[in-house]
Design a protein around this nucleic acid. Structure first.
Lengths: 225, 225, 225, 225
DNA sequence: CATGAATGAGTTTTCATTCAT
DNA sequence: CATGAATGAAAACTCATTCAT
């Protein structure tokens, strides 16, 4: 499971020197995060952020290069963490050999990401919104999926296929289905938090079971032209 | 399967009188659609739309109430169509009795929606973007999922459960998984059209197979607290 | 008393050739007059006028040079008539010798102008509004008070002073007081027509009596430095 | 006589906190006042105001909510002051007993208002213009004539009638004549300041004498049906 | 002569950013 | 470091006017 999991923990690394993040920066980021989650980045004004943070408008620009700098400070840590952590989880599950089954790490993965989503709802809402709106941010996110990471992901999937634990489909497609299922959960959680009646544990079960059954090798293999 | 499936066909109903849509309106909508798909709604100026459409800025406001009116004219027809059509597909598949299997209409549904997505990529990109960015648009989209439609959806799922064709999970969760899988496909299609190496037919197969296996009743039922 | 007293009668002279005013022009002028009286000239759009008149916007410009041309067509006849008619009334009253008293023509004047105001309320509201708002229109109105007319007015007042019927004050001041009293009535009539509880006859009496007493020579003349 | 009589003094109360009005606000108000007096409110652009004030256009909106907010800041203090002050003058004159004659307070009133008009010519030109142009502003002005004030005015007039100092005409009519005479002076002063050849003292004498003679009880009462 | 779609300059207003205090 | 008044470019939108039909 990922170690660094709270946004606040990340700010330290990306903002102040020596991992320092000032009280003022915290106030600003908290205010901005809340506002960006409520509305969209474009609809939130710097005046509004300053007001909510209880500082002067000019103070924003003493602490961040830009209005965009504030957004970056919110997104970066999360975005830089998501994929590597997922892979780490997969790897861990596969290598921690005792249970080298699909089930083993699907459960591990789902549990981990669901927990992560619950801890960082607001930030994820912001990231989601930016991802779909802004070509640049989207590129940034995808850019993080470095070839190294993709290679790693492919290795893991190939290993599982070899072990007869995973359907013999293109890795891209398998990844897409994995992301879809987790992403779909994320979207509902983030956009309609009040509608969630299931417990976290139950949700993890459903998602995992769905994925395991959907991605286990078929007895009668599928013929694709 | 849905009859009216092109955006252009819908404009007729929502804009001009007598189902007429003028040449100018077409130029504006085409320009706006392209721009909104490239950037985001907020990042596109009315001047830009006018330039691309080859008309004067004032002409936009002569033909649409608002900048927002242009967006509406793009989104409305699609949004109003997506869910009802999906349900119709499901219903058709179930009622067209001969093969009342999960497989039957999952394939039908996936085939239909994949085709729809391929036909309306740009518009769907715009809708996706708005959905995540704007509380109001999100509400509008969800508001269109009228209780009547939800009731219908539940009926269909209950019928399938009774027939032993569908896992006995909460309908909400089943719907979420269905949307996730289709939505995940949509996202990839829409945001990274160039990366798609699989044929449409192959995609339909994978998605359908994944869903059918993921949602078929288990031999050993899952225990959820 | 003035012969030509309705706006419609004047349009003939200023618009069409041969005193002709077309049906379309009438519709436009009626619509514009109503709207200008409701709001102000600047607040009324050409679209609005066209709509109310039941014609196309372009039609306005086929019948009048300008938006301003419409206003002119409304104001001109009235404006060109007010002062000359007043003077004519005064002159008539003075020359029609039988009653060469101040009372005689103050009553005549007031009666005439009150009747005029009651007949042309809407147009007067427009003129009033323009007079206070627009330097150019104001100049136009004052420009009509040609030297000739002023000379006439002075003659009449001098004659009355000589007859011991009028206070020996500067003619400018006497004219101002005359206009004030009539103008004050006009303003109330035009802006708050609903508040008028007095009959026309009663109003004429009050105004006349006030003016006669205010402008009759004093027994003990006033000393002014 | 009214104590607070300069616009500047009022700005303090309505704009800044602690009765403060910043240098910038003063510059803007001065520029706007001059321009609104020259042309009309609608004809003056915000760019123009900013230029004349020597500030950036945005600065206007930093200091006033609206373009209309600037107008309000100019009009409000004057408008809120005119009528109450007049009544106060009347009341003072009547109660300060020694000379409870019509003459006593007509002179007081005229003197006071003429002085006021001379001090605030520009602002009054703006108010006049708005009053005739804009239904809303007119309503605002009239709305300020609270029932309390009207009741007071009626009391004063009734007292004077009882003392045999005032004609037995409807109070509404008497008020109208009073306003007409003062308003007429105002209009001339405001619109044609250069034409004024009489001294202030002389003007006060003429207006007062006219009003006193016009409103004193007649020896032979007027018969009105 | 009437139409009404098209025009584009002009309007008010917003907002991220700067800088003197 | 913090402040907040000032900035001015850019935004959405209006509207009198033109002109092809």
């Amino acid at each position: 499971m990922s170690e660094i999991e709270t946004i606040q923990a990340y700010y330290a690394a990306s903002l102040g020197k020596d991992g320092q993040i000032t009280k003022t920066q915290q106030k600003i980021l908290a205010a901005a995060l809340a506002l960006f989650a409520e509305k969209s980045y474009e609809e939130v004004g710097t005046r509004e952020i300053a007001d909510r943070a209880g500082v002067a408008e000019g103070t924003l620009f003493h602490n961040f290069v830009n209005k965009n700098g504030i957004l970056d400070a919110i997104m970066q840590p999360i975005v830089k963490n998501i994929l590597p952590t997922m892979l780490n989880t997969l790897d861990q599950a596969v290598l921690d050999g005792d249970s080298q089954t699909l089930d083993a790490f699907i459960v591990a993965l789902v549990t981990d990401r669901v927990a992560f989503a619950e801890r960082n709802q607001e930030s994820l809402a912001v990231i989601l919104s930016q991802f779909f709106n802004n070509e640049a941010d989207r590129a940034a996110v995808m850019g993080m999926v470095s070839p190294v990471i993709l290679t790693q992901a492919n290795e893991v999937m190939d290993r599982l296929k070899a072990a007869g634990e995973l359907v013999e489909w293109p890795n891209r497609m398998i990844l897409q289905l994995l992301f879809s299922t987790l992403g779909g959960y994320l979207v509902e959680k983030v956009l309609y938090p009040e509608l969630n009646q299931l417990t976290t544990a139950a949700t993890v079960r459903y998602l995992s079971d769905f994925l395991v059954n959907g991605l286990s090798p078929r007895r009668m293999p599928l013929h694709v032209d």
